[in-house]
Structure formats: structure tokens, C-alpha cells
Design a binder for these strands. Structure first.
Lengths: 181, 181
DNA sequence: TCTCCCATGTAATTCGTTACATGATTCC
DNA sequence: GGAATCATGTAACGAATTACATGGGAGA
């Protein structure tokens, strides 16, 4: 299972049980808005995950109000989600940074802080290799807008690399804070 | 036509005539690697664009070597591409920055530097409205990885805002350079 | 001969989009 | 009474993915 939507759904359901409507609201109102909140995307995806045994929906009858289905991860679903979270960072993943960041956002809850730090280090290593390959495309005769766009792209990866380092430091700080309290 | 792939293909064909294979190589070897270079994506997309009269493929018979089809924009295709490039920046576009940057990369060639500057200003205005709405989601009790990911997202938009301003200055500098030379 | 690169295509399947359909409750 | 919100679904269509198929040339 490669599909980013299903990955996101598993991550959100791992946090807490939610209904399809709850999930739609997450996509409609939070920074996870890269995903569509349309019912035609979400309900079929939930049914697929349920058919594969990764989630289970429980109908709630709440006197009067329309019934809703609360979905939660099964043991198999939790396992599948952890596998997705653990998978090593590939070269092509750098072309989809939003997906990587979403993965990282769920990292503490799925695999714990130590895995988060490992993820940050692996990401930094990939970035260090990738960034120099981008500069090659900076030709002297490009249109200015093309050049600026490419410069922005490179700057973006460099900023991400700086972020990975500061994020590792934040984990150190958090660990020290734990010991002190 | 909303499809990002078709938008990218029109942009690349507007730069110069290319074959399907040429286009695949662009996606495989340049920073435009967000798009798939698989033949199952590109050839059908080219056929669609040709059926709609936006591009025209000319078969080259090059004694011995396998024939290739060189595609170029038609007048209708150029018009359609300009419309795509001109379209105002919408709120939801901010969730897909890569698509926006790609649009900008083609801006000088499709609409000229004045349009590029207008685009940068419009983008800055949208960002100024959008960034404050993200901070709301920084809750005190988030897992650290989630918090760091969100902080990165916000920092990313802020860096983009700074970039728009420096890019406008680069256009001013370029104009001044033109006058001086 | 074998592999790599050039070059174009199709078929099966899956997934997302748009639009439509339904139905209850709350608030004005 | 009408609009907004809660809540779940389906149908038609379009498009991407993966995998397969084909065929020629160049160089080891």
C-alpha cells in the first residue's frame, strides 16, 4: 500500500477513533489540506481499508441524530501503519516533501522519539547528497523566472536540512528537560 | 483543464518542440521530477492534448533510427497555456506550492516579466493572509514531531514570502541592468 | 551476443474528481 | 420555512500506475 491518502487515514485513526466526517473535517480545516475532503475520496478509502482488515468501523446509534461509523485501527492496521512509517527514505521521496513531513508528524506517536531522530538523520543524509545535484541545472541563460524558481527549490532543500539539525537539537533538549523534571 | 501534467507538458512544448521521449527525460533527470516519467502517463497525455487540438505531433523519419514524433504547440495550445498561466492564485493553490513554482518558472516565457512580478505580488498577498491561519494549529500538547513538522510548514511559507520580495527586487535589478547596457 | 539507450505504445487495474442523493437536527 | 451543519453514500468519468510489448541502433 503506497497510497498517501490511506497512509494519512491510518495515521489519523491511530491517534484516535474518528468517523468519515471527522476525517473530512481534518482535511478541510487543518494544514493536512493537501488531501481532498471530498466524500468520494474518503468513504471509498475507508471501505477499502476495512475490507483489508486494517480498520474496523463501529456504528453508533445516537438517538435521533443520524448514525455514524467510528473507525479505529485493528492490530493488523497498526502493524501496517508502523511498516509504512519505518520504511527507509528513498531518493524519490525527496520529490514529495509534504508526504515525508506528514510521515514525520506521526513519527513520535507511531515509533517513538528515538525513531524520529533516526528519521531526521536519514533525511539529512539524503538531502546532503541531493542538493548538489540540483545546482547543476542552474544554467546562465535561463529565463529569470525559471532561475528564481530553481533557486527557491534549492533554498528550500537547504532550509529543510537546517531544520533537520535544529529538530535533532530539540529532541536533545526535550530529553534533558525530562531528566530535570 | 486542471491537470498539472498537461500544464507541464504544454509549458515544456512551448519552450521548444520535443518528443515524448524527450519529455520523459525531462521528468527523469531535472528538478521537474515531481511528475512521473512513465510512458503510461506521458504518451496518453500527449494523445489527449493532440485530440483537443492543443499540440500537433510531426513524425520524423530519420533513416534507420526509429521514427519519433516531435510535438509542438498549436495556436490554440499556446492560448490555452497562457490562460492557465494567467489564472489568478486561489487560496487552495497554496497547498500545492510545487505547482505554483512550476507555473512561475514558465512565467517569463509565456507572459513576460511584468506578469511575473504581478504573480509574485499576488502570491505574497495570499501568503500574508494564509500564514497567520496556520499558527492556530500549534497546540501546546502536540507530540514533538507533529509540532516540529508544523513549525517547518509555517517556516516554509515564511521563507517563500521572503523569497517573493527578493525575487521582485531581482526583476528591478534586471530592468536596471537592461537600461545600463 | 548481450546490454544499454532510443522510442512509442497498450491493457488492466486502481484511485480520485465531480456531482448527485438522502436524511436528520439546529438555529434564525 | 430556510439555511447551515452533521453524516454517509454512489455513479460516471478521467487519469495515473504497473507491467507488458515491440523494434532499432550502438558499443563491449
Amino acid at each position: 500500500m503506497q497510497a498517501p491518502l490511506e497512509h494519512a487515514l491510518l495515521g489519523l485513526l491511530q491517534q484516535q477513533p474518528r468517523s468519515g466526517y471527522d476525517l473530512r473535517k481534518v482535511f478541510a480545516t487543518t494544514p493536512m489540506g493537501t488531501f481532498s475532503d471530498s466524500p468520494g475520496a474518503i468513504y471509498p478509502a475507508l471501505h477499502r481499508l476495512e475490507r483489508r482488515g486494517l480498520i474496523r468501523g463501529q456504528i453508533q446509534d445516537r438517538g435521533g441524530l443520524r448514525r455514524r461509523r467510528l473507525f479505529r485501527l485493528t492490530a493488523a492496521g497498526l502493524h501496517a501503519f508502523r511498516l509504512l512509517q519505518e520504511r527507509p527514505i528513498a531518493r524519490d521521496d525527496l520529490a514529495h516533501l509534504e508526504a515525508l513531513m506528514l510521515r514525520f508528524a506521526f513519527m513520535d506517536q507511531s515509533l517513538g522519539p528515538a525513531a524520529s531522530v533516526r528519521f531526521l538523520r536519514a533525511l539529512a543524509a539524503e538531502l546532503a547528497v541531493h542538493i548538489p545535484t540540483l545546482r547543476v541545472h542552474l544554467a546562465p541563460d535561463m529565463p529569470l523566472s525559471a532561475r528564481l524558481a530553481l533557486e527557491h527549490g534549492i533554498g528550500d532543500y537547504k532550509a529543510l536540512l537546517r531544520w533537520t539539525r535544529s529538530a535533532v537539537l530539540r529532541y536533545r533538549g526535550a530529553a534533558k528537560g525530562d531528566r530535570l523534571s
